[in-house]
């Protein structure tokens, strides 16, 4: 297996969602409020990762344009949750750059049960250079 495919698979497993459930309806992009700011769109992220391609995604502006508003997660008929895939790619880029923003001992004991798991994992790496 080549490196790109291996990395794509790792990022997909990290996302906790399966891009192969996608039926290519495009509803994620159709519903996305920042569609026009993106060079690669949510449906393209799903399609690229489903076929083991990630290089272009790592270079994409989209990972900084996604608002994590979860509209695509709410409305995807296949439960693919594209926003989590974008988040996973973003983590794999940003996560390599610096120290954690949030350290595990600072996670409050009781979490708001409605808080998306993504919000807490993202805080580990997202903001610090």
């Amino acid at each position: 297996m080549n490196n790109e495919k291996a990395l794509a698979e790792e990022v997909v497993s990290f996302s906790g969602t399966n891009p192969r459930n996608c039926m290519k309806c495009g509803k994620c992009s159709a519903t996305c409020p920042t569609f026009e700011e993106m060079d690669l769109h949510p449906h393209e992220f799903v399609s690229y990762l489903a076929s083991g391609r990630i290089e272009k995604l790592l270079q994409s502006k989209t990972i900084y344009k996604c608002l994590s508003c979860f509209a695509c997660v709410e409305r995807c008929p296949r439960g693919v949750e594209p926003s989590r895939l974008i988040e996973a790619v973003r983590d794999s880029v940003v996560g390599q750059k610096g120290a954690d923003y949030l350290s595990p001992d600072r996670i409050p004991e009781r979490l708001d049960p409605d808080l998306p798991q993504q919000a807490i994992t993202a805080a580990f790496r997202k903001y610090k250079k």
Binding site: C25, G26, C28, S29, A30, T31, F35
Partner: peptide
């Protein structure tokens, strides 16, 4: 080609459909 993302009432009282044409992206 492409599923509609959302439909909303516009200021004219009509409906606006937001989608993506997947062929032209």
């Amino acid at each position: 080609k492409g599923m509609v993302g959302k439909v909303y009432e516009n200021e004219k009282g009509g409906l606006t459909v937001q989608a993506v044409d997947l062929i032209s992206n």
